[in-house]
């Protein structure tokens, strides 16, 4: 199989769900009512991906808010902070680690099992990585950043094992904070390794935003089968580095910029895939957007995915790939 298409993780929430989440946060609707709408939105996204012909699906994370606090809310030893500013008028809440981290039970497995039941295509299990969880948390308990990252790794390993036991064949561990401190890249490798150790499922790590140049030497060291990279937002600048140091694993190559409202044209995306094929074998090259699409509107996200799939198909046909 060549040039398989996939997504990074999140999709935008439809208007009815955004509204229901706001109502739920004000205790105006019960848990079950929210859950029903989360399921409806998930079904819609799975059907959309199937109809479009995407090869490896995601559930779109319709039931998750922030990617770090979602796990914080479901872990013992972890609370959620008050509001802190991200930029402009945007505020978010952070995990606060107040005691020893423990998993009360599986966090993502029920949703994964339910969503996988809606499709015969493989559905990714989605975890937020231990380094990112550590970097984005306030730490009131552990002695060091390393101790905290490894504590998160321990519970995430249990979660990955449970996903695998439930049947997940692909598990993605997001590390958007990977490039924040280039002096801690050895810790990223160590903590990720503690999550992926002994797994037979295919493992992926996604990262975005940052000083790739300094991170580059670590790509081959990351203990996963595939790395998923934001490529288009940086104008494919990274490609030349791969000429000097070839990647020894699979790559999911971002061909869609998620930070702009503008929908790419099919020729634009074809060109990006063709460029990628100069560096990567088609059976090791996966095609996806740069990052989660949750900041786009539902319509923009759908259009962008449609262009991505059509462009990939056109490249496959032109090159006689299957």
């Amino acid at each position: 199989m060549s040039l398989l298409t996939t997504s990074v993780g999140s999709f935008p929430k439809p208007g009815y769900l955004t509204k229901a989440r706001a109502q739920h946060s004000r205790d105006e609707i019960p848990d079950e009512a929210l859950r029903a709408l989360e399921e409806q939105a998930t079904k819609e996204w799975i059907a959309f991906q199937e109809d479009l012909g995407i090869d490896i699906l995601v559930d779109g994370e319709q039931y998750r808010g922030d990617m770090a606090t979602y796990f914080a809310e479901n872990l013992e030893g972890c609370e959620v902070s008050g509001l802190v500013r991200s930029y402009g008028n945007r505020y978010y809440k952070k995990p606060v680690v107040t005691g020893e981290l423990r998993r009360e039970g599986p966090i993502t497995v029920d949703w994964w099992r339910w969503a996988q039941g809606l499709t015969t295509r493989p559905l990714k299990g989605m975890l937020t990585g231990p380094y990112t969880m550590m970097d984005w948390s306030f730490n009131e308990h552990y002695a060091s950043r390393e101790d905290l990252a490894l504590a998160f790794a321990k519970v995430l390993h249990q979660e990955a094992k449970d996903l695998e036991a439930a049947g997940a064949r692909v598990i993605q561990i997001d590390e958007p904070a990977l490039s924040t401190r280039t002096d801690e890249l050895d810790l990223v490798v160590k903590a990720l390794g503690a999550v992926t150790r002994g797994l037979s499922a295919k493992t992926i790590t996604h990262t975005c935003y940052g000083d790739y140049d300094r991170v580059f030497p670590y790509f081959n060291k990351l203990p996963v089968d595939q790395i998923d990279l934001e490529m288009s937002n940086s104008g494919l600048d990274l490609l030349d580095r791969f000429r000097r140091d070839p990647l020894k694993k699979e790559i999911a190559f971002g061909v869609i910029d998620v930070h702009t409202h503008v929908v790419e044209t099919e020729p634009q995306v074809r060109e990006r895939i063709e460029r990628a094929l100069e560096f990567f074998a088609p059976d090791k090259l996966y095609v996806d957007p740069d990052c989660g699409l949750k900041t786009r509107t539902v319509e923009e996200a759908k259009e962008k995915l449609r262009v991505m799939v059509n462009a990939t198909r056109a490249v496959r046909e032109a090159r006689g790939l299957r």
């Binding site: 991200s86 930029y87 970097d135 984005w136 924040t180 940052g210």
Partner: peptide, 14 residues
Amino acid sequence: DGLVRYFDTNTYYR
């Protein structure tokens, strides 16, 4: 211009 991460904080500046 656009948003860029501010040092090792999870915040952004224009």
